[in-house]
Design a protein around this nucleic acid. Structure first.
Lengths: 243, 243
DNA sequence: ATGCGTGCTGAACGAGCGTTTAGTCTGCTG
DNA sequence: CAGCAGACTAAACGCTCGTTCAGCACGCAT
């Protein structure tokens, strides 16, 4: 039996920290991984948590197992946050919901790091987004709010990849003063990109159907919904079968 | 003056390699950096080039300077490839042009790695794409092929970020059998994503202007972009059948 | 022939890494 | 009280890393 609380009274610091030492190490690791990536050293994590490197290994067995423990922790937090915000994530902008409170910043940062690195948390997060987005877009199509697609699954995946990907690109190339402040990062990204995104979603980019029709002709039958073989050239975009 | 060619006749191998040893090391480094990232060790690069680690340092001074030399080499190659393919990159899909020949694969891979890592080559590549895309979209708008935007610069940047970002996401989460074969990667990405992309560009996603108009109302005046004059509330194209 | 610059190597150095080991301290239990 | 279990640390081990060093081989000018 671990005494969990018993030994921590020894810390001579000022404010009390009611977390287990194990939890403090884990949280320090999440923050470090979020801020400098998964190459962060055990020694720096230990220093952040105010313990010796050996204790990190003592509690988690190895750095890799510490990484796994962080993954599980963050995954559980995501699931919890989604449950608590049911429906609010409807817009498909799950990240916006998650990045609400400042104390969540390291967790959001961890998720984004993991997405960029193709880690387990990132993969799971992306699949969650795709899953939710499939549901919400099908609802939106039924309600006549969104246009139908010839391949709903592919469209949803593209939308998720493109929004997460552009966020990562913006973080990489137009980083704000403090790249760890994920709420500021999100605010900046939305300020810069929301208008063009909305514009594209509302009016598209091209004025004619020609490129799309040519492509459909070129690839033959699309997965769902018959490819209308007439392909009468450049018909104006509007006047479409809108639900 | 370096004799550059003098000593290399000593290599006892089968096929002749008319590259300088320095160039062979640099090419090996580009390939390694492309395939495993910039954390690749000097020792593995040296082994790839068939030389000792010390020789790598002898020629380049340090690993960081080798990295810089690779950056310069790849940048020069991009400039050359763009000059040779003037106009062909019109679609804004610069990468497609670059990824044509298989021997270019490591260079394209290097560029993508650098984009992901936010390196100098990546930043320069992105800015080139934005620059070109600004030109081509403004032409397309003038010709009536593309719809105008309230903020052309922001739209272009969003389009570049979203296309490069979604490509990186697809490479990360749906990697093909050989992730180094960038032509296969591109082919796969296009096969999966081109239809939804074209669909979105042609018909948009939303059926009404409501979200866009609400946002414009919310933020007040749109940015000072040139589209200011004809921003009378409705861009000319859409008849907008409000369900 | 001699000397020199240069391409090049094997061996080693020092730093940082993850991890192990041996041991101390402390609170609980019999 | 004794003894034990577990939190915890300082030190060190073994490894990989980038880099340095001393020296070898060879083409070229003197």
């Amino acid at each position: 039996m671990r005494s969990e609380v018993g030994s921590q009274g020894r810390s001579g610091g000022g404010v009390a920290d009611d977390r287990t030492t194990r939890a403090r190490i884990r949280d320090a690791a999440v923050r470090r991984f979020a801020s400098v990536g998964f190459g962060a050293s055990v020694r720096t994590i230990a220093a952040d948590a105010g313990v010796s490197p050996a204790l990190v290994i003592h509690h988690f067995g190895s750095k890799e197992k510490l990484h796994v423990a962080c993954d599980e922790h963050v995954l559980a937090w995501i699931a919890e946050a989604k449950r608590a915000n049911m429906g609010k994530a409807a817009g498909g902008q799950l990240l916006e919901v998650l990045a609400q409170a400042d104390e969540m910043a390291p967790l959001v940062g961890y998720v984004l790091r993991s997405v960029q690195a193709g880690g387990a948390v990132g993969r799971s997060f992306v699949e969650h987004m795709v899953e939710d987005a499939v549901k919400y877009t099908s609802e939106a199509v039924e309600q006549g709010l969104a246009r139908p697609s010839l391949d709903e699954e592919a469209r949803v995946r593209y939308l998720v990849y493109s929004s997460l990907g552009s966020l990562l690109m913006a973080m990489t190339f137009d980083p704000p003063d403090d790249p760890q402040d994920t709420t500021a990062v999100m605010r900046r990204f939305m300020g810069d990109m929301y208008l063009p995104m909305l514009e594209l979603f509302t009016q598209g980019f091209l004025t004619t159907r020609r490129m799309l029709d040519d492509y459909l002709l070129y690839v033959g039958d699309p997965p769902t919904g018959g490819a209308r073989a007439d392909a009468d050239g450049a018909t104006p975009t509007e006047g479409d079968p809108a639900a």
